[in-house]
Design a protein around this nucleic acid. Sequence first.
DNA 1: TATTGTTATACTCTATAACTATA
DNA 2: TATAGTTATAGAGTATAACAATA
Lengths: 149, 149
Amino acid sequence: MSSTDGPGPELGKRLGYLLKHAQLRMAALNEEALAPYGTNGRELAVLLVLDGREPASQQQAAHRLGIDRTTMVALLDTLEGKGLVSRHPHADDRRRNVVELTEAGQDTVRRATKASNEAERTFLAPLSSQAAQHLRDSLQTIVIQPGKP
Amino acid sequence: MSSTDGPGPELGKRLGYLLKHAQLRMAALNEEALAPYGTNGRELAVLLVLDGREPASQQQAAHRLGIDRTTMVALLDTLEGKGLVSRHPHADDRRRNVVELTEAGQDTVRRATKASNEAERTFLAPLSSQAAQHLRDSLQTIVIQPGKP
DNA sequence: TATTGTTATACTCTATAACTATA
DNA sequence: TATAGTTATAGAGTATAACAATA
């Protein structure tokens, strides 16, 4: 169309712009892929953080996810309402809630992860498989150890 | 520390998680780098979209940036209040506002871009320069042509 | 006193709907 | 009628402060 399309040569090279819009696109693809399972990327993240590890308290789960414990409350309210997670008081410390996946939760994780893998494939489609792997690796390198020695 | 740190082996490989947290980190670094110039990454994006091209209407600028025209209003209110952009009615179509960088705006773009470049260098520090270039290229490939043929 | 979960509240970013002035 | 800018409003997503129960 016209010359007013796109971010232009300056902005289109800023990492801030690229990361934001890449994230928006991935989130939209996940949203679409996970809708049939009644969930979304944010909830899947919570389920994944609880999956395959020793049961966690709400605060531990929030910390793993990098969100505040007050934010976790509403997230778990929703997931518990859907029957995907269970909360019950810790035996030794009754201030804590032990949070676990239910069987339905484990099933949802399995199927939603598959759907999300497909969304990731769509996202990465414009890249060679080598470039896609490099992108994954580089993001992991940057995100997993954020400068804290 | 304890085994409750980090996203865990499942979540830590999801592109959604990696992109979101990479974006958060880049945004935080930009925030820090641009604060001395009284601006931030969001405002710099607007300035960059107006810089070095023919003057645009608010709607054109919003479109280039991928945001709604109603969102652009408050953004430009702030930038105009800081004296970085000017608005004046288009000669031929008085419904439109022609938006341009002021001299102060151009100066801010120059200096803020330098500071943001430094923030990008910090962000990319854990990568080899080759890997950093690949990351840039791949993100650009994915973001710039989002599947619309 | 300190910590866990919770609630109330607020702030940021964004969009949709409706208004106005122009076309 | 249609479009550009504006305003009012609402909905995510997030955090901070304060409270109850428990340690």
